[in-house]
Amino acid sequence: MAERPRARRETVRLLFLIAPSLFWLLVFFLFPLLLVFAISFGQRGTYGGVRWDLTLENYVRFFDPLYLRIFGRTFSIALTTTFLCLLIGYPLAYFIATRPARWRNGLVLLLMIPFWTNFLIRTYAWLLILRDQGVINTFWTGPLHEFLVQIATALPLPLWEILLRATSQPLHLFGTDGAIIVGLVYGWLPDMVLPCYAAIERLDFSLVEAAQDLYANRFRSFTRVILPLTMPGIIAGSILVFIPSLGAYVTPDLLGGAKSIMLGNVIYSQFMSARDYPFGSAISFVLMAVMLVGTLVYFRMGAE
């Protein structure tokens, strides 16, 4: 008998403790999500707003080749971004993690400092670097071109002709998918580096030594020991980069010159210029479903 009130007190205490996070999840996550889900089955009112005649049409519309193509492009841009982030981020994380302990925090701080600046401002900065009269092209058509002219007069070779012709015109970097990817990679790099760094720092390097004692060369000890042991960091980083890249819409507008459209832009225009909330909600939901599947796969892999 004496146990019951204590058990109840325990339950009450537990409820009390989880109440804030429960409240948070309900109000800021579940409720908006349900709202989006509900709206995705409605129909567009003539002047915006939602008419509640339930329909599946918004989901059917998504399977129009036009939107599927945009989805495919979005997916491949996000995938490329994630891959490049990994390619740059992992070695960087490895470098930082293998420095003496007193250096590491400082190096991580150095990595983070540029990211205290607003994302939009950093994206604008890339605009100034990439555009036709930007930093890169000023160098490309200026000093580099003149340097090549001098070499060409001193040492005539057919190779110079090609390079001279190339540098006589600015490179078209702005307004391309490449520019979008550069912006995204730069924007989300820390999200890749930090989880990788955490995983590598925790790595027990005596295991690497053991592998090398057993005649594994450096490559083999990397692929068989280091890589598998730091995989959770790689996967966490990839998800952290992939998800925001999939939903990007400022970067394609600014660096892509809005000439290349991603799913985030389609959603934005559905809510803004088309005032078609139901269709916008349906696309958002499909996108969220894809992200959810990705995250579930991650947890499944983590469990194994």
Partner: peptide, 9 residues
């Protein structure tokens, strides 16, 4: 809106 999306895509 669809036309505008087609143009941009």
């Amino acid at each position: 809106e669809r036309i505008w999306t087609e143009v941009r895509a």
